[in-house]
Amino acid sequence: MRADGSATVKQLDGQDFDFDRQWRMSGTGTWELTDRPMGWSDGQHVSLSVTRRTSSAWREPADAADEAAVDGDFREPAPDSYTWTLELERRKKGLALYFFYSDPDNRNTYYLEKTR
């Protein structure tokens, strides 16, 4: 994510139930800080939109239950475009960005890391 509002992602998994489809996406797009209500929490969020997918891959199943959930013969690639809603967490060394994956009621968190 750059100061000019542009963004690049590499092998980022889908959010919420899309995570269970096991696709990963790389691409370019934009981001913006927003305070639009998201239903589950108030405050500011980052909207990260990939508007141009450059590649798509599949994540290896973590266990037999994951493998059974998605039959390899029926996998679909990542969508051509996709938008994540990222939460912000204040830490001693700055802000951490994350989103929820799989069943939103479980509140599993997926933290993003910046590559250099």
Results as ranks from 00 to 15, higher is better:
Asp105Glu: 05
Pro104Gln: 04
Thr54Pro: 13
Met1Lys: 05
Asp35Val: 15
Leu112Pro: 08
Gly27Glu: 14
Ser26Ala: 07
Thr28Pro: 10
Pro37Trp: 02
Arg24Ala: 12
Leu112Asp: 05
Arg21Asp: 05
Gln15Ala: 03
Val70Gly: 07
Arg52Lys: 10
Asp71Ala: 05
Gly5Val: 05
Glu76Asp: 06
Leu48His: 01
Ala57Lys: 02
Ser47Phe: 00
Arg2Gly: 02
Trp23His: 12
Leu88Glu: 08
Thr115Pro: 01
Lys10Glu: 14
Thr115Trp: 00
Ala3Val: 09
Thr8Arg: 15
Arg36Lys: 07
Phe17His: 12
Ser41Lys: 08
Gly14Gln: 15
Ala62Leu: 09
Gly39Cys: 12
Pro77Ala: 00
Gly27Pro: 14
Thr83Tyr: 03
Glu60Pro: 11
Asp105Phe: 01
Thr30Val: 03
Glu89Lys: 15
Phe100Thr: 12
Thr85Lys: 06
Leu86Gly: 09
Gln44Pro: 03
Thr28Cys: 14
Ser56Asn: 10
Val70Leu: 15
Tyr110His: 13
Thr30Ile: 03
Phe100Asn: 07
Phe17Leu: 05
Asp80Tyr: 04
Gly14Cys: 12
Lys92Thr: 09
Tyr98Glu: 08
Arg24Tyr: 08
Asp105Trp: 00
Trp31Leu: 10
Ala3Tyr: 01
Thr28Phe: 15
Lys93His: 10
Asp42Leu: 12
Glu87Met: 04
Arg53Gln: 03
Phe17Gly: 05
Ala96Lys: 10
Pro79Met: 06
Ser41Asn: 05
Asp4Thr: 08
Leu95His: 15
Asp4Glu: 11
